[in-house]
Design a protein around this nucleic acid. Sequence first.
DNA 1: TCCCAGGATCAAG
DNA 2: CTTGATCATGGG
Length: 312
Amino acid sequence: MNIPYNSFRIPKSETNGPLDLSRTIISAQTSEPEWAKEREFFVDVKELHGIPFKYSLSQQGTPDDFSIQVRYLSSESNHSTRQVLTSHLKSILRLDDDLNSFYEKHSATSEPLSLTFPVQRGLRLMRGTDLYESLICSILSQNNSAVRWNQIARLLMRHYGKRVRFADGTSNYLFPHPADVAKSTEKELQSRTAMGYRAKSVLDVSKKVADNELDLLALKECGYDEAMEILLQLHGVGPKVADCFLLYGTGNLFAAPVDVWIHRIVTKLYFRGRRATRLRTARFLRDRFGIWAGYAQLYLFDYARHYTQKIA
DNA sequence: TCCCAGGATCAAG
DNA sequence: CTTGATCATGGG
């Protein structure tokens, strides 16, 4: 077997602070379907500048002293394709985010968030590659388990996305374009993907994006409040889904999606158990943590899910 | 059979 | 502005 893998490394010097690749990718962030895992490598397939890439990442070392090994396949391989992939990876893993600054700013022992730092050091937010994909995945996640919305997303890709083949003999389906989903019907989406009542929302959003009634890129440029107002007008998009899209999709670090887990742990750690609405919890996170609200949410979420016995 | 899953919607209080 | 039933669907 002679597979023409390209390979290179991203050194720690190109990352701003620590990184725990495994924890980051496994943390089930709702911007895109979860990556596959092959041995010590995490694998994903994306189309970058119109060229399909299949890439595998593996981290060697510790969160504070490491390098990232990258292997990839693409139909074209010249010097610029490697550059395209490198900047893509740095973008989706948010390697420029100053994690040490995040830790230092909230390291006081009176700050409950600091409880999550020792175990989760190096955990980073991820940024979705495609805004439409991020919004659809966020919609699929509502009232659904992570495993299940991932299955649905995969079915959506298989039935409506383009198939791409690679030199190692494998093939994958890309996430579909809005227009290709918009051509479908509610019943067809349900029978093919089992997304249930979310089909109405998915179809609605796909049509609006395809018809240019909804400009997702504009939501990335405008402020938080304005973007939120527009998103809430979409059927099937509430505060939590909108925040997911803003955080994981557009990369708005002020957005802090509040689900049952976040609501539970914030109520416990910051409200002394006093009852509050989720909207109030979300506002609290934005006010208290500012540009680190999204990160605070990420750390508290993982902490709440893995260490619930400590806060029960 | 009932309950839950990283919620949203609609109708009432 | 808050609360409660309902919404497909699959798994425990």
